[in-house]
Design a protein around this nucleic acid. Sequence first.
DNA 1: TACGTCTGCCTATATGCTTTAGGCAAAACC
DNA 2: GGTTTTGCCTAAAGCATATAGGCAGACGTA
Lengths: 194, 194
Amino acid sequence: MPRAGLTPDRITAAAADLADRIGYDALTLSALARELGVKTPSLYAHVAGLDALRTDLTRLALDELADRAAAALAGRSGRDALHAFADTYRTYAHAHPGRYEAARAPVTPDSPDSPDSPVIAAGRRNADLTRSVLRGYALAPSYEVHAIRLLGSLVHGFASLELAGSFAHSAPASDESWVAVLDALDATLRGWPA
Amino acid sequence: MPRAGLTPDRITAAAADLADRIGYDALTLSALARELGVKTPSLYAHVAGLDALRTDLTRLALDELADRAAAALAGRSGRDALHAFADTYRTYAHAHPGRYEAARAPVTPDSPDSPDSPVIAAGRRNADLTRSVLRGYALAPSYEVHAIRLLGSLVHGFASLELAGSFAHSAPASDESWVAVLDALDATLRGWPA
DNA sequence: TACGTCTGCCTATATGCTTTAGGCAAAACC
DNA sequence: GGTTTTGCCTAAAGCATATAGGCAGACGTA
């Protein structure tokens, strides 16, 4: 009986692809094992269980998002940076809905999450990038948190409703609304106290 | 053996309470049956299955949201209406996280959802109320859809991230950001072409 | 190449959830 | 009070997570 060559990384990668295809909620160890041509219990030699797999997936997605956002932000600032940053998340959500949902999933605290666990670190990378986008607006310190929350809410809310199909039943295509919304956000941030 | 007096409505109501307590995803027919002091198969006389229960829950939540939003909007317009409307959703999300998630859950199409199914109708009620909030801003027709999507994205995004705990790790409390964000939204809408 | 160890993937099994089938007794009706 | 209806039950199948233990392929050593 030949060996399948499983590793934690290959398993997480396969889980990410599968989640994109069948949905984050439908991701099961059974389905993943089938996908990998392996029996379910074999996976337990490499991942601690379903919760651990989900956490790994969250970390993978957050890291991929941070990588792309960092690349998109390179050399940009102000409105350009804002659009590039927001587009990164929206595009990723469309291309990888399962991963995106994983990125948004609250991490199940297997231990009182050590402050430098890989998931936490990946989350912080994204938060830091968000802050760097706002540097272009030179906001008053008291408005910085509001701006972070506004940006996060808008991008996540739009992508989330779009994925759920809430925008699909009325014209025009959501791309048009997306620019309008981002421009409004840019105007708001430029209008806030500096 | 005395009867439990189950009805579809009592079951849905109990499911809503349970979902608020243990989370929408953790809601199972087993747990619900335990809650009601009944064996799991007994529920099948009143609901078609787990998917049907979830759909019922979505309808319940959407109807409750529409009821509250309608009451909050009575006699208000403009900025007042905007705040009252948005507060309704955010408050509901805090008080009933399980129901709120149910409201947001995409409905599983058991049949090609008849256009006047109760869930669809409940969804439309909420959409209509959203539009009525925007009447106070007298927007140009081409901007109406953008405004609906902007409002929806912002409210849902903020509530969703807040529920997930994304705002809990930094000061100040999110209430402060909430008003700042809503005022910015109000300013944006007043600035859009009328 | 041959031996010994390690380890990857297997089968077997326990538990929990969804769902269907069929039985029995409490309610409801006349 | 007898009959019908109906609500809740037990029994059981199918699939999921998860653990325990076995067997053979891969690897190190000589």
